[in-house]
Nucleic acid binder design. Structure first.
Lengths: 125, 125
DNA sequence: ACAATATATCGACCAATGTCAATCTAAGGA
DNA sequence: TCCTTAGATTGACATTGGTCGATATATTGT
């Protein structure tokens, strides 16, 4: 890329596309997301893209105080305790849940806005 | 589920939780999502949870006519043509893209509302 | 018909992921 | 102090998933 002036969209006359674009290509209305942005969003979506983890989030969100202990989860999910613990870790590391240990019990709460944020970013892709 | 009358939230007095709930549990404000719903949403999210596929969707959406040919993608993604073709297939099967073959070229377009729909469902989990 | 091009499919490979049994850690109660 | 219980960690395993090279299919141009 050695051009001193960036090729603008308005520079493209209908029949001719951008320099390195193929003949079949149509004009762009805006920029696509960058690869870095794509990787960040993909990481968040990967953390959510599991039935057990979605149910965990939903169970936590369904509680009046937006908080659930692990026993709430082991009771409703037909998964072993270590597996549930693993999913919780994934969700905490992805920034969707926060852990608070009180006595013997661990309580998990939703990080406010974290889900909505991902949903918003996704809708803007 | 053989109860004739559903247990209402207002039936639960503060100190006592639902029948099979543990001592650490707090009351629910609403129902959590069902496992079927969770699996459906997870399938959609899995299709989106990949950097290459997010970029593909973004590139398609960035086009003025919401349509891109494969050559647009091979030019921008540093992935082999078979790999891109694979990702396109995943996105079509998940219902996010539609394929239209015209002549030698295949054009992929966004299925209107499909992304917003997932974003909306996700935000409601 | 033939050659060239665009895209899809196949087969194989390696990395990442979900799951569980076994074990470890920490907090409470007797 | 010891036992019990809640939860996290570890290690192993099977499955899924992303990638590419090779090949197949289909369409256009000569």
């Amino acid at each position: 890329m050695t051009f001193t002036r960036t090729l603008l969209l308005t520079d493209i006359s209908p029949p001719v596309a951008a320099a390195d674009a193929a003949a079949c290509s149509s004009p762009l209305a805006r920029e696509a997301i960058g690869s870095l942005h794509a990787e960040t969003l993909a990481r968040s979506l990967k953390a959510l893209a599991d039935p057990a983890r979605l149910r965990i989030i939903s169970i936590v969100a369904a509680h009046a105080d937006q908080e659930a202990c692990v026993c709430d989860l082991t009771g409703q999910l037909t998964l072993s305790q270590p597996t549930i613990s693993h999913h919780l870790k994934v969700l905490v590391e992805a920034g969707f849940l926060a852990r608070a240990k009180r006595g013997t019990w661990s309580y998990y709460s939703l990080v406010p806005g974290s889900i909505d944020s991902v949903a918003g970013v996704l809708a803007a892709v």
